[in-house]
Simulated scan of single mutants.
Amino acid sequence: MKSSLTFEVVQEGQIEQCRDLCNELMAFQKSQAIIAPEVFDRMNFDTRMKRSYDSALRSQVIVVKDDGVPVGYIFSTVETVKQGEDAIPAWAPVQEGQEVQGFYPNGDELPPVMGCVSNLYVREAYKGMGLGSKLFGMAMEWLESFEDVDLIMIYISNGNEAALDFYLSRGFTFSHEVFGGFIKAVYKRLK
């Protein structure tokens, strides 16, 4: 790992430094998508990361920087689960009247709160250096530190098989397809 790289837990909501990285992630997800890639045109820092950050019960953002310039990040949340509600967001590629499964797994009793790894992104020039693994480990340590979190979910955009394999290799289990396969959900129970 380069000596100029630093890892920083973002303090007091200073997430604006992730704007470009988040928008790059949305463009990357669009480039990989097999199902409804045009949906990613409506996804950006403001509609995805900022909105989720502001509405979560608890949020953590860790940024990796090279000489002070952000080159990767991970964004995790602890969220309140609304029992019996599996809302479908406006951006979801669901046709009116189409029955699809949403974010939560069917048949499982959901806990009142759950952890979620929402975004993990490292710029192409920095891939293969173990940065994603380090960021992921730091985020998992944070999520596992909460006594009220016993379920962690991760939602992976369609076409991003490398991300799916990454999470499966780290102890997560496939749960279900969200919105007819637009997203794949994986989970890990902690207790």
Rank of each mutant, 00 (worst) to 15 (best):
M1Y: 14
K2G: 09
S3K: 13
S3Y: 09
L5R: 05
V9L: 04
Q11E: 15
E12Y: 14
I15T: 06
Q17N: 07
R19W: 11
R19Y: 11
D20A: 14
C22Y: 10
F28Y: 15
Q29W: 08
K30L: 06
S31G: 13
A33C: 04
I34Q: 15
A36R: 04
P37W: 05
F40S: 07
D41T: 09
M43Y: 09
M43I: 13
N44K: 12
R48Y: 15
M49P: 02
M49L: 15
R51A: 15
S52M: 12
Y53Q: 02
D54T: 08
A56M: 07
L57K: 10
S59F: 05
V61K: 07
V61F: 07
I62Q: 04
V63Y: 03
V63D: 08
V63K: 04
K65M: 05
K65Q: 07
D66E: 14
D67G: 00
G68Q: 11
V71M: 09
Y73W: 13
Y73I: 03
F75G: 05
V78M: 00
V78C: 03
E79Y: 03
I88K: 06
P89W: 00
W91T: 01
A92D: 03
A92H: 05
Q98R: 01
V100L: 00
Q101P: 02
F103H: 11
P105D: 10
D108K: 13
D108Y: 10
P112K: 05
G115P: 02
G115L: 01
C116V: 08
V117M: 12
S118R: 13
N119F: 15
A125F: 11
Y126S: 09
K127Y: 09
M129Q: 14
L131K: 06
G132A: 13
G132Y: 07
G132M: 03
K134W: 04
L135V: 04
L135I: 08
L135A: 06
L135T: 06
M138L: 13
M140Y: 05
E141A: 15
L143R: 01
E144D: 10
D148H: 08
M153P: 00
M153D: 00
I154D: 00
I154S: 01
I154T: 10
N160A: 14
N160F: 14
A162G: 03
L164V: 09
F166H: 08
Y167C: 11
L168M: 12
S169M: 04
G171I: 02
F172Q: 04
F174L: 12
F174C: 06
S175E: 12
H176L: 02
V178G: 03
G180H: 01
G181S: 07
F182K: 02
K184I: 00
A185Y: 10
A185T: 11
V186W: 06
Y187R: 09
K191Y: 14
